[in-house]
Design a binder for these strands. Structure first.
Lengths: 296, 296
DNA sequence: TCATGTCCATAGGCTGAGGCTATCGAGCGG
DNA sequence: CCGCTCGATAGCCTCAGCCTATGGACATGA
């Protein structure tokens, strides 16, 4: 049994005429006749009663017709489904990102991506790098924005560096600028009133690690909030915070931004995905867009 | 897209392994790889993510898999359905017959046919020859047992002679034997108390025509019943009746059968079906059985 | 009654799809 | 570092399916 044969069969059943059916399926009449014969002989039953000018389905033909129609329709559906996925008219990307990246880079990029591919469903999971790596390995995520270096020994993950961010100090616009000479050294943070993110933020680990490298333990006036809350506390004068420069620029109102003194603090943002399976088409496209945005 | 390709695709999706899938579908591994490639290139999307020892479906593959399964299942169903029809394990025969034939020939034959092919549904329509011919032409019947000659100019019907029946006179066992010398001449029916069938019975038309050919109009004591009723009336002594010899033999109790004098009355029973369409397989089989029974 | 037209079946030739074997090449394990 | 596994590639061969040309059955009109 072949798709062509079913197509020819349905055409004859509808036209009740071999010659006209042959024209409709763009094949010569003998070829069509031959294929119908082949189908009949394979199935072991005549499908048409061939009377001059009155081609009719036999009972076997009647039984076959609805199934043939359904098979052909399913084949069409399959073609369309797959092509919609391939042409990014439909699909899904499960993207993971650390919390600070969700507020920084993602909004614009996801907006642009969604405008370009409105049929693609975007699922965002916010989490610490460790969680994201595990979810990637499980196959629960297609793509993740992580901070390098990866915390765990990354099991078969491929990472592509996306961009590097400088960290800066934000303080309330109404308070005196921290540090000296318009720059803050890490050592200046000793004893300073820090507003600190909750556990799980890479920024927390990074900042605390930098302080310890200078030989002191930072002191927190408030700790535990998300990015927005931290900025809000700083704006209200509860203390200062170390945040990515991009975030500081975006939420400038009521805040003062002070760069860190050399060498400063940087973090490397990368895209990660499993090495062993190719990400879905839509995920590859999002990766492409993210990389383009990162280089810009 | 081809059935083989879908079969191969499903095999690989299930085995997650090209070489093993190739064994299962009994084809060499290169052929299978090639067909999967062909399918992918036709659909315009990769279906599998080929990582060493970890073959996985891509999103396109995931979308295709259920449809492929359904298509293959439908194809299987189609094969089975058609073959069940062809092998007479399933099917339907719509058989028409004149009322007198229903009581005579049919019960035994239909019983035998049903024993041989229990899956075949038998639909019997009782009617006058005129009705049966019309129903045949309409396609509402597959086969009909009719009395020749056919009343209407039979439009493209093929008839096969089945058997000839002699008509006999039945009378009550308690009444004197009608006619003379153990035989009844048509002329003897003049003024005789006839029990007559309802309109629509061929036997009625035949008997009345025979009487008129002899120059008289028959007189009825009772008229309008079916075969059983007529025999009952005769048995009760209401009169005599002209019936097929086979019927007379079968319901002999309380009845006396007298043959007609030469040349007597005969009727020819035939099988009729449309010439322009081949009857269903099951109908052809029933026709065969009927003809065999008729010759016996 | 014969010529003509219609329409499906058959015959014969050609091309390419799909099968096979042999082999390559990448990646993993000992 | 070598060998093994496994999918991809190469090259060849056969036959399935398409084509054109023609046959043959049936209907219609002169």
């Amino acid at each position: 049994m072949q798709f062509q044969q079913l197509t020819y069969f349905v055409a004859v059943a509808e036209a009740r005429h071999f010659t006209r059916a042959a024209e409709e399926v763009h094949v010569s009449q003998p070829s069509l006749s031959q294929q119908i014969r082949a189908l009949e002989s394979e199935l072991g039953a005549e499908l048409f009663s061939r009377a001059r000018g009155n081609i009719t389905l036999t009972d076997a033909g009647e039984a076959l017709l609805p199934l043939a129609r359904r098979i052909l329709a399913d084949a069409d559906t399959a073609r369309h489904e797959v092509q919609e996925l391939a042409q990014l008219r439909r699909g899904r990307v499960r993207l993971g990102a650390t919390p600070s990246l969700c507020t920084g880079l993602l909004p614009d990029v996801l907006r642009a991506f969604h405008d370009r591919h409105p049929g693609i469903q975007l699922l965002l999971e916010e989490g610490g790098s460790l969680d994201l790596v595990r979810e990637l390995a499980r196959g629960a995520l297609d793509l993740a924005l992580v901070v390098l270096p990866l915390p765990a020994a990354s099991p078969a993950l491929t990472t592509v560096e996306l961009l590097q961010e400088d960290l800066v100090v934000v303080s309330s616009a109404g308070a005196p600028r921290p540090g000296r000479g318009g720059r803050v050294r890490i050592a200046d943070l000793q004893g300073a009133p820090l507003v600190m993110f909750r556990h799980g933020y890479d920024l927390r680990e990074l900042t605390v690690a930098a302080c310890r490298a200078e030989g002191f333990e930072p002191s927190f006036t408030v700790e535990g909030g998300e990015m927005d809350a931290v900025l809000g506390f700083v704006r209200a004068g509860l203390g200062i915070a170390v945040v990515p420069s991009m975030v500081a620029v975006r939420s400038g109102h009521g805040l003062r931004t002070t760069p860190l003194a050399r060498p400063g603090l940087r973090r490397t943002i990368a895209l990660a995905h499993r090495s062993d399976v190719a990400p879905p088409r839509a995920a590859r496209e999002l990766q492409r867009v993210l990389l383009a945005a990162g280089r810009a």
